[in-house]
Write a protein that binds this DNA or RNA. Structure first.
Lengths: 337, 337
DNA sequence: TGTTTTTATGGGATCGTTCCCATGCCTTTA
DNA sequence: TAAAGGCATGGGAACGATCCCATAAAAACA
């Protein structure tokens, strides 16, 4: 079933059918009715591939994320979807599993599909190697608007939507400093990723502003992506060493979960023996009332803002480069208020 | 840049370039080399739209889910992606927000995009109304393989991958019965959805098999999708009534979270004052050790199985209709073991 | 009433592939 | 040495839309 068939059934030419389907002006109301009746009767939908070939664009938006599982990226997708659902754009989703190889392949797929724009959380673009270089190069030559989500790229030329990692870490650490703690640790993720380094930077800055020295023995780094089990083990080791900080900054939700599992098992009481503040809400906090202060990143808003920014670039390609910082909310437990 | 341009640069015809790109036999090795050199040099990728139009299929797979947020559907997407990532298929994602209107629109989009197959979790197809009828009708006329995920449709003609809702609810309830409890309640979700009714059926069946009467005052129903806050309120009311069951079956994770929030706040001790068993793991259970028995649905496996089943239908369209039941694992807390 | 302008419609080229068919060359075989 | 077969290659129609241009009919104006 093509517009030719519809045209034949309605007794008009395919040009007229095309005009009717695209709401062109200069179509007689009676003709429009006649055509639409046939279209509805036959439940006709024009082929997106033929339209795309002819129009030279596809009305699709490519979304590249490291993963879909878990609620952070899930909610980003949710936010993107809620924004795009009332536009003509369809989502093409590629998950890279944090592998540069898959990220490159995803970009090739999007190129092949001639997507109108790209939303990207790169897991590789920040490194200094061939793959990372190729990713940035491909993006540059792509010639469609790109919005980076949550992670920037080296010498980024693109729009971006980020959570306020550095400021967030700063205010979180500041909350500890204001309480007068001096032995402050940090359990953070890989600093070769922008997200890890920004958070560490905020932490360091806060210490420095309050003239508190960094205690190397309380700085623990976890590779990306972190596994809760690894964090749990390292936490147990820290406790076994007998030397605990008074307070600690936890770099992300997985680290927080692993750390709490460790201290709870060893009988360390949070909010008394140690004060914890970190990134990301964990569901369990809402259910039981263990002291834990955290920065709530609004991941759905991250997705919404990114999608809206892309839509803006799509309708106004010459617009200036934009960066959005999505503020996180600091939730302080009662022992830190 | 098209295959014509590549052909000109390589000094061959576009037919030959097409043959090279599609790994056809009967191409001279030297010619193949010559063409590939130009292709690599120009970083050429053929247009998916032109290929699709010519071949009459698009190598895309449509995924329709109620939502992407949260870990259940996120992990389903994750499983689908991991299965499809090494195939030529690309994922077209549509989230319906549990609205029939959007589900119908999603199906139209997939029709327009000429997807090769569909993975669908319908939030409406089970009802007896015009929208639900239209959804089933559209699927029937679509003429591509369809695999339903987690929720069946009325008089389903399609492949499906389901978690063992009925059996799961049965064995969960049985665990309570084996402990000798007689006052057993259930907090379940909307029974007009297949998932809700299956679970309720399993619960009822277990009671009946053990000759325990159903106590209507302990059967609470929550609309779909449930909000934790609503569950929390209803739980508080139940507690206020002063009449609590000895044990309760909780229909899903949101219900479990809301219920626990309620009882913990009112000082009811789980595993002592009341025994709870339900569907879906909650992260907090792994961190603190409150007694809660649950069925762990393997949502990633659900996605993987569905995608694999679709791939099978795609390579062998005449195959028989298949249904897969993905077993859940019953995790019993120490008070029920 | 004749000329110009506006409006509605149809015809055909085009987008970038695939794939069938034709052609010519090289090899094999009687 | 001529006929038959296989192999590498090129030419052109087809896929199903869009969109420009031509044209006919209707409306506006002198």
């Amino acid at each position: 079933m093509t517009i030719r068939d519809i045209a034949a059934l309605a007794g008009v030419s395919k040009s007229t059918v095309s005009r009717v389907l695209n709401n062109s002006p200069n179509v007689d109301e009676k003709t429009r009715e006649k055509v639409m009746r046939v279209v509805r009767e036959k439940d006709f939908i024009p082929s997106a591939m033929a339209q795309g070939l002819s129009r030279q664009y596809a009305n699709t938006i490519g979304v590249i994320l490291p993963e879909a599982g878990g609620s952070f990226f899930g909610n980003i997708i949710q936010g993107i979807n809620e924004t795009l659902i009332n536009t003509p754009y369809t989502i093409l989703l590629c998950c890279t599993e944090n592998k540069a190889e898959y990220e490159i392949r995803a970009l090739d797929t999007l190129r092949q599909q001639k997507v109108s724009g790209i939303l990207l959380t790169s897991s590789s673009g920040f490194y200094e190697n061939d793959d990372a270089y190729k990713i940035r190069q491909t993006l540059e030559n792509f010639n469609v608007p790109v919005v980076l989500i949550d992670r920037t790229l080296k010498s980024s030329k693109w729009d971006g939507v980020y959570s306020d990692n550095s400021t967030g870490a700063y205010v979180a650490t500041e909350a500890l400093l204001k309480k007068g703690f001096k032995k402050i640790g940090a359990y953070i993720s890989d600093t070769s990723l922008s997200i890890g380094s920004s958070r560490y930077k905020g932490f360091i800055q806060a210490l420095s502003d309050y003239h508190i020295p960094i205690m190397e023995e309380f700085i623990i780094t976890e590779k990306y992506p972190a596994s809760m089990q690894d964090v749990y083990w390292k936490t147990c080791e820290l406790i076994k060493s007998g030397n605990l900080p008074e307070a600690i900054f936890l770099g992300n939700g997985i680290i927080a979960n692993g750390f709490y599992k460790g201290i709870l098992e060893k009988g360390i009481v949070p909010g008394k023996d140690i004060h914890c503040v970190g990134f990301d809400y964990s569901e369990f906090l809402d259910i039981i009332n263990l002291p834990y202060s955290y920065l709530e990143r609004n991941s759905k808003l991250l997705g919404e803002t990114a999608a809206n920014s892309l839509l803006k670039s799509l309708s106004n390609p010459s617009g200036l480069r934009q960066e959005y910082i999505i503020p996180s909310t600091l939730h302080l437990d009662k022992t830190l208020q």
